[in-house]
Amino acid sequence: MTTMMSDTPPTAAKRKSRLSVLVILSLLWLAAVVVATIFGEHLARYGATVAVGADRLQPPSPEHWAGTDNFSRDIMDRLIVAARSSMFIGVSVAVISSILGGATGVIAVVWKPLDNIVMRVLDGFIAFPPILLAIMLVASFGGGYWQVILALTLVFFPRIARVVRAATLAVITAPYVEASRVLGGNTLWSTRHHVIPNITGPLAVQATYVLSRAIVIDAGLAFLGLGVPPPAPTWGSMLGDSRLFVDQAWWLVVLPGLCIVLTALAVNFAGDWVRDLTDRTLGTDR
Rank of each mutant, 00 (worst) to 15 (best):
R162S: 11
G240I: 03
H193R: 15
I196F: 10
I196K: 02
S140N: 06
R159S: 14
T208K: 01
S180P: 02
A214T: 02
S237T: 07
Y176K: 06
A204S: 13
W235V: 07
S180Y: 06
G240S: 07
S242P: 09
L133D: 04
Q206A: 15
G227K: 01
Q206N: 15
L133C: 03
G142E: 10
N198C: 08
G227F: 06
T168Q: 01
P202I: 08
L152P: 00
A166F: 02
A174M: 12
A139N: 14
P229Y: 08
V163S: 07
A161E: 01
G201I: 05
W189R: 15
R165V: 06
V210Q: 03
I135N: 02
T200M: 14
T173K: 14
T208P: 06
A134C: 11
V216G: 02
A214H: 01
A161S: 11
A161F: 08
G236N: 03
V195Y: 05
G227S: 02
I196D: 07
I149M: 11
A179T: 13
R213N: 13
I215Q: 04
Y209W: 11
A207P: 00
F141I: 04
L211P: 02
R159I: 10
S237V: 05
A179M: 12
S237M: 09
F156Q: 05
D218T: 08
V216A: 13
I215A: 10
R165H: 14
H193E: 12
R243P: 06
I172M: 11
V195K: 03
I217N: 09
A222H: 11
D218R: 09
P202G: 07
M238I: 07
A219W: 06
I131H: 04
L188E: 13
P130S: 15
T191N: 06
I199V: 15
Q147L: 00
L224Y: 10
D241G: 09
A232I: 12
P202E: 04
V228E: 04
